[in-house]
């Protein structure tokens, strides 16, 4: 089968704050295979961004990280920052929601792309500049040779995000992590950026992790979906299965709360997400779940095969079958 690019096992991230410890990620297991597009979905505070910031080694010293993150056969947890620097940008790179803060306002974009190239490859300035223009072309920026010598403020939001993608893919990484890359953009521009990301995946065989709160975005581009809640994975599976017959009450709740044409009254999930300084014992979702009983308070559910999905619910086999509300 396809080889694993990224393997995360029992990842835990805790932040020390003046008010106490925040248990942001509490035992995440995740695999990304070569060339696949994994969508990671969850609400604010679910730990989806922190999981991948930890994998990239980008968290501050306030964060305590444990567990294992293996990228292309190399264990990353415990590596020095110098060792990590040689991995980031070469084997994996990450793009964020706000492209303007990811770019340096006082350098021309071509130079910023070239910097990334020269950090990992032996290229002359001239070669780097030429390659930068090619990269701008790949991400769909018109007149790339002229645009290459412009500054970030001369680009629109969507174009800036393309520049950031060009930097991220400059060294042809095996894995591209995109954290809410279209959230700050208008829908018509979001559609363009999703096309670029999908094209990178298909053209270069880059595995992509797309982190988002938007189930529509996931439905458009992902192959595999991972649903996170309160710092843990609650369900994983292929995009078709997960949207067709979700088994976890949280996944079902998410799908039922999205407005869709012809859908009558929405079904919100009752209550609100838990305080991660003091998450509920056992299954963290039990406080909002209609199917929870006393066993859910004791045992933390692990991902287990259920139909063709991996579901972390003790009572998954007891739930009524999922009715599509469409």
């Amino acid at each position: 089968m396809a080889d694993k690019i990224l393997q995360i096992r029992n990842l835990q991230v805790t932040f020390d704050t003046p008010f106490g410890q925040v248990f942001a990620v509490r035992g995440v297991d995740l695999d990304v295979e070569a060339g696949e597009l994994l969508g990671v979905v969850g609400e604010s505070g679910s730990g989806k961004s922190v999981t991948f910031l930890a994998a990239m080694g980008l968290l501050s010293s306030r964060a305590r990280v444990s567990g294992s993150v293996v990228l292309a056969g190399e264990e990353l947890i415990g590596k020095s920052s110098r060792q990590l620097r040689s991995v980031r940008g070469r084997l994996m790179s990450m793009i964020f929601q706000d492209p303007l803060s990811a770019l340096n306002p006082v350098h021309r974009v071509g130079k910023q792309i070239g910097e990334m190239l020269q950090a990992h490859q032996n290229l002359t300035n001239k070669q780097a500049a030429a390659r930068a223009v090619e990269l701008l072309d790949i991400v769909g920026i018109p007149q790339p040779d002229q645009r290459s010598s412009q500054y970030p403020h001369e680009f629109s939001g969507g174009m800036r995000q393309r520049v950031v993608i060009a930097i991220a893919i400059a060294n042809n990484p095996k894995l591209l992590i995109a954290d809410e890359p279209t959230t700050a953009l208008d829908v018509t521009v979001q559609a363009q950026i999703l096309e670029v990301i999908k094209r990178v995946q298909q053209q270069f065989g880059t595995a992509v992790v797309l982190i988002t709160h938007d189930l529509g975005v996931i439905a458009r581009v992902a192959d595999i979906v991972d649903v996170m809640y309160a710092g843990r994975n609650v369900e994983q599976g292929s995009i078709e299965s997960l949207y067709d017959h979700p088994s976890h009450p949280y996944t079902r709740g998410l799908l039922a709360s999205i407005p869709q044409p012809g859908k009558g009254r929405l079904t919100p999930i009752r209550g609100f997400p838990p305080n991660m300084m003091d998450p509920p014992s056992g299954c963290a979702f039990r406080t909002r779940c209609d199917f929870a009983d006393s066993t859910c308070e004791i045992e933390i559910p692990e991902l287990r095969a259920f139909s063709d999905l991996q579901t972390a619910c003790l009572r998954a086999q007891l739930l009524p079958s999922f009715r599509k509300t469409q």
Binding site: D186, V187, T188, Q192, I239, Q326
Partner: peptide, 21 residues
């Protein structure tokens, strides 16, 4: 441009992707 939350319907439909901003 608005993605549907049904992956089958979403991938089956034809899309108009606008150029520029």
């Amino acid at each position: 441009a608005v993605p549907l939350t049904d992956p089958k319907a979403e991938r089956a439909r034809t899309r108009v992707i606008l150029e520029g901003e």
